[in-house]
């Protein structure tokens, strides 16, 4: 069948300027970071770009830098292992360190990058198997039919496509209010998680707002939640090297035993990380405990529209939200 990648030209620019020039020269150029998602697409021959631009050799895309506001700037090519093991990240943003440490396997974390993890494509098996679905430019969704296998698909915000975000770090970054630093064709821009991750209603063929000639340079995690109480948990069929069935990230501050401020985000339930605003507004000012957990479970999944086979994600999501609140006790 298919085990050998198609032929392509590989460029390995050593500067951002060179990378931009290459992207300008080649309309279907594909930016490759750690390659953990890209190479599978190529080996299965579902996607066959003729030009690859490998951005690994660009120095400013690497490393973790402290910011004046107590936050961190993490280069997009920083590996997940570096993020997970960084003292700075662990001290200030343990939810991010935990999320990075839960991605895939040690081998993949050693090569896979933070930028790649947030920009990776969805895991919908129909889409990845090359079915001509909406996301692949076709005119149907194979995962949302009466007989389709959709246990890993959306509870919320489906719009023709029912694929979910597979990223663990994206969920933590969204909870921490991170911004995504992008170099475009003409100028740089910095966007919030809300703008970076996009649903099928915005563009059904992309998971992020990155367009052709956009390079994700780095991710800025503001000092807002540095050192605050944080929580991350991921549930998967296999507790190592597996994509989340549901994951959750939370950052919170307590005052006098009550929740003063909180940010809570769930992943793998819709196409983008889902901010649990109902839970947030419910629990601010409240004291964590069993009573509050019961209330949290009631609202955590409100509005969910399960498909044929993914009803189980609802109690999973509710339980994870309750556990996050329990961690504040």
């Amino acid at each position: 069948m298919t085990d050998v990648m198609h032929n392509f030209e590989l460029y390995q620019p050593a500067s951002l300027a060179d990378a931009q020039e290459l992207l300008g020269d080649h309309d279907d150029a594909w930016i490759i970071a750690g390659g953990k998602d890209s190479l599978d697409w190529f080996k299965h021959r579902v996607k066959q770009p003729s030009v690859l631009v490998d951005i690994a050799a660009i120095p400013e895309l690497h490393g973790i830098r402290e910011e004046a506001d107590g936050g961190l700037y993490i280069g997009a090519m920083t590996t997940l292992t570096e993020v997970a093991e960084s003292d700075l990240v662990n001290a200030r943003f343990p939810a991010l360190a935990m999320a990075a440490s839960k991605v895939a396997s040690p081998q993949i974390r050693n090569a896979g990058t933070l930028g790649g993890n947030v920009a990776q494509d969805t895991r919908c098996t129909y889409y990845r198997d090359g079915f001509p679905c909406y996301r692949a430019g076709g005119n149907t969704c194979y995962a949302n039919t009466p007989t389709a296998m959709n246990r890993e698909h959306t509870l919320f915000e489906a719009s023709r496509c029912v694929a979910v975000t597979p990223s663990d770090t994206g969920v933590a970054l969204a909870a921490l209010g991170a911004t995504f630093h992008i170099q475009g064709r003409r100028r740089d821009r910095e966007v919030s998680a809300d703008e970076f991750f996009i649903g099928p209603d915005v563009d059904i063929e992309r998971m992020t707002s990155l367009e052709h000639r956009d390079i994700l340079l780095g991710i800025r995690v503001p000092g807002t939640w540095a050192g605050a109480h944080q929580y991350f948990e991921k549930v998967a069929d296999r507790n190592a090297w597996d994509f989340a069935l549901v994951n959750i990230a939370m950052a919170a501050r307590m005052e006098g035993g009550a929740i003063a401020e909180v940010s809570m985000v769930c992943g793998a339930v819709q196409c983008t990380p889902r901010r649990l605003t109902d839970v947030e507004s419910l629990i601010v000012g409240e004291t964590p405990g069993e009573e509050l957990e019961t209330l949290v479970k009631r609202v955590a999944s409100s509005g969910a529209k399960p498909l044929n086979y993914n009803h189980f994600k609802i109690p999973l999501m509710e339980n994870l939200a309750a556990r996050a609140v329990r961690s504040l006790v």
């Binding site: 599978d40 396997s105 895991r123 098996t125 990845r128 069929d237 296999r238 507790n239 190592a240 090297w241 597996d242 994509f243």
Partner: peptide, 12 residues
């Protein structure tokens, strides 16, 4: 695929 078919991993 090895990402979707889950074999036991050493760590667990």
């Amino acid at each position: 695929t090895m990402a979707d078919y889950l074999v036991p991993m050493a760590v667990e």
